[in-house]
């Protein structure tokens, strides 16, 4: 079982769109839970076919963060991401990729994939979503 997280603007029908899309391809969902950060919806899906689900959702235009990634909430200002990079570097955590997945109300949600997600989550615990 693996986890993927969809990051999208919260709206009526979002959950239905996601579950219908996955159901059409008979993706088995072990569990699904939704939460919100400001006006952004986070839908966490656990599935034994997370790779296929990930591909389907990305192709449908959703931002998806895989289990190997973590999601952080930062102020939307120059240098914010750089400070996160420094913190990770100081803790010998190698960054693989950084992608801004949502921006609104002066904040941005950023997906980070790195060599040690668990350690990164500890080190960045105050900003991890």
């Amino acid at each position: 079982m693996r986890t993927i997280t969809i990051v999208a603007q919260d709206r009526l029908g979002l959950m239905a769109d996601v579950t219908e899309l996955l159901a059409e391809s008979t993706i088995n969902i072990e569990s699904i839970e939704a939460s919100k950060v400001d006006s952004t919806a986070l839908i966490k899906i656990i599935s034994d076919d997370a790779d296929t689900a990930y591909t389907l959702l990305v192709e449908a235009g959703f931002h998806v963060v895989s289990q190997a990634g973590l999601l952080v909430r930062l102020k939307d200002e120059p240098g914010a991401l750089a400070r996160v990079s420094r913190t990770l570097a100081e803790n010998d955590i190698d960054i693989r990729g950084v992608n801004i997945v949502d921006q609104h109300d002066g904040y941005e949600l950023v997906a980070i994939s790195c060599c040690d997600s668990n350690k990164a989550k500890e080190v960045l615990s105050d900003i991890v979503v």
């Binding site: 939307d76 120059p78 914010a80 991401l81 990079s85 992608n99 801004i100």
Partner: peptide
Amino acid sequence: MRHIMIRTTENGEIDYDDLKET
């Protein structure tokens, strides 16, 4: 490839300050 996404300014251009800090 390792990659880092950089902010943009309102007109869509890369934010040079954010790039510089990163």
